[in-house]
């Protein structure tokens, strides 16, 4: 994939938040390194699944792409234009191109606006429509997401969770975006409703040719939705590759643990299953451990000295990238034959 092909190009993005200094401390300012050097690129029409535990920086990354927070450093190129360099006014003109769907449909809709108010705003601004024509456009949008146009004058509280998420999806579609970031769009919904919304999203991606970053902690949902999967851990991408490849042949120890933690619907195999249970919690992103951030929780034996050396993010197979380190990849020597690591 050459640079010209990529629709969205994220280059070494960092998002650090300074901690408040105490009055008399003369220590250096400390930072929460929520996103710490992420590079990704998406082709048009692609769905990238982004997975990871809470606190790993998924949401911060998506907000940085959306320019809801300006990243500390790095570039975000949408169709070749660097969003981080655009002044506020030009950015505003670009915003219709990238929209977001949030997790909680109970919190993300304004309770005082009717569905018509919520959806018409973007259409009115973009197409300068008024009156009946505007109503028609809103109605069509509602039908597109599986609602009926007659519900236009209702308020969000009159809808169920699944219907509200449909409204939120319609709102994201209203400005006719090219890129959508969906941040855990189904995790607040019940199982039977979840599949309805997933089907809708999949249909929309195909019919409208959308490019999407789909964030979730549920790997089985991501596997179903995404073409490629990126696994994030403590502000960094640790594994990236084709969805089926990452799920069936995970190489990074963290990805393996995540996949091992997915419960199945087969009681017999569940009872005899050897699950990789990770020890402890992820380390704090304030002073992340030196070297490999996963070393503390890994079950792969490695020397303390090795743990302090940085891993190498490398392509181990065409399109399959992994952060290779003695603590994260079992036979790391296969990929790092002449490295500085000791052998255990």
């Amino acid at each position: 994939m050459s640079l010209q092909d990529s629709f969205l190009q994220i280059q070494d993005v960092r998002s650090w938040f300074p901690l408040r200094k105490t009055l008399f401390s003369n220590k250096q300012t400390q930072y929460v390194k929520a996103v710490d050097g992420v590079s990704l690129s998406l082709v048009k029409g692609e769905v990238l699944g982004l997975v990871g535990e809470s606190g790993c920086g998924k949401t911060t990354l998506s907000r940085a792409i959306m320019q809801l927070i300006r990243p500390t450093s790095g570039k975000i190129l949408l169709e070749g234009k660097d969003l981080t360099l655009l002044p506020e006014k030009e950015l505003r003109a670009m915003r219709p191109n990238f929209q977001m769907i949030f997790q909680d449909p109970f919190a993300s809709l304004n309770p005082r606006l009717t569905v018509f108010d919520t959806l018409s705003e973007a259409i009115r601004v973009r197409h300068k429509l008024r009156g009946d024509k505007l109503k028609d456009a809103v109605g069509q949008l509602m039908i597109k997401v599986g609602l009926s146009a007659s519900q236009m004058n209702k308020y969000p509280h009159e809808f169920s969770g699944g219907q509200r998420q449909r409204i939120a999806i319609a709102r994201a579609l209203a400005p006719e975006p090219k890129l959508i970031i969906a941040d855990e769009p189904v995790s607040a919904l019940d199982v039977s409703i979840q599949s309805q919304v997933l089907n809708l999203l999949k249909d929309l991606i195909q019919s409208m040719g959308l490019t999407m970053i789909f964030i979730s902690h549920d790997l089985s949902v991501v596997k179903y939705m995404a073409d490629r999967i990126a696994v994030m851990y403590l502000g960094k991408i640790v594994e990236l590759g084709d969805a089926t490849e990452v799920i069936t042949n995970p190489v990074h120890a963290y990805t393996q643990a995540l996949i091992s933690a997915i419960p199945t619907l087969d009681p017999k195999s569940e009872r005899n299953r050897n699950r990789i249970v990770l020890q402890g919690d992820p380390p704090s992103p304030i002073n992340p451990p030196k070297g490999c951030s996963f070393a503390l929780r890994s079950w792969i034996p490695h020397s303390p000295k090795d743990a302090e050396i940085d891993g190498v993010f490398m392509e181990i197979k065409t399109g399959h990238f992994v952060e290779v380190h003695p603590a994260t990849v079992e036979n790391h020597r296969r990929y790092l034959p002449d490295s500085k690591f000791e052998t255990q």
């Binding site: 199982v191 039977s192 979840q194 599949s195 997933l198 089985s220 949902v221 596997k223 179903y224 939705m225 969805a243 089926t244 997915i262 199945t264 619907l265």
Partner: peptide, 8 residues
């Protein structure tokens, strides 16, 4: 309706 039981 659980995605993991479904064909991609």
């Amino acid at each position: 309706s659980i995605p993991s039981t479904q064909e991609k």
